[in-house]
Amino acid sequence: MTTQAVRAMPETTMIAVEHVRKAFGPVPVLKDISLSVPKGGVLSLIGPSGSGKSTLLRCLNLLTIPCEGTIRIGSHAMRFGRDHRMPRDRDLAAFRSTVGMVFQNFNLFPHMSVVRNVMEGPVTVLGQGRDEARDLAVGLLDKVGLREKADAYPDRLSGGQKQRVAIARALAMKPEVMLFDEATSALDPELVGEVLNVVRQLASEGMTMVLVTHEIAFARDVADTCVFMRDGFVVEEGPARQVIEDPQQAATKAFLSHFHKAAV
């Protein structure tokens, strides 16, 4: 097993990534990535497609297993590398249950009603009773403005509604951290706002979050820190407003110039 104290770290660090490397076969995707997010911090990850930002995000909840390095979320740490065995299914599941994730394609369970989708984690993973889980789920649906859709099936919802259900489903596990993997990229433009509003609300409530996004204005306004990645490296990292409005690195400037033409 790989859970162990990583090294002395400030109490307030919620996410710590140290020297993470990942290759798919011979293709390196992440090349020695280190970063950290304090409790309540919001980090936005931007970069061109293929830069490794989604892979990095998936490494944070171990949907993708790093080849080397350490991932720590709250008090759970996992270390990877030649000297460490592959974590077992049970340990992976325990680690992931503390991290909520929202996907580009929603990935709601189509055979379950909206409220059942939200109840699924608490019931199956945490062993909560149905009544308790239902109350929790209805409360969360209320929070994302979808209480009246509780008994609908996902195929009856718009993309924005689906994504808000997906956020409620992740929140039902009372995660320490929320990850958003291009959560608005599959949405029609007029539906983006309703999802971003929910994310903004979570930020104001002090949820620790990592956002992989193409919404540059959002990355600037909601995140405290912004990381620009390219080719598996962190190119630039700093306060979100500074990185996006006044980037220091040529690669960051080149990438952001595509967006400045549009309204940022």
């Binding site: 949907l63 599941a93 991290v99 994730m101 996907f103 997906a166 489903r169």
Partner: peptide, 10 residues
């Protein structure tokens, strides 16, 4: 992915 992310076992 969605099931794993919730912490469900195989």
């Amino acid at each position: 992915d969605a099931g794993r992310a919730l912490g469900m076992r195989r």
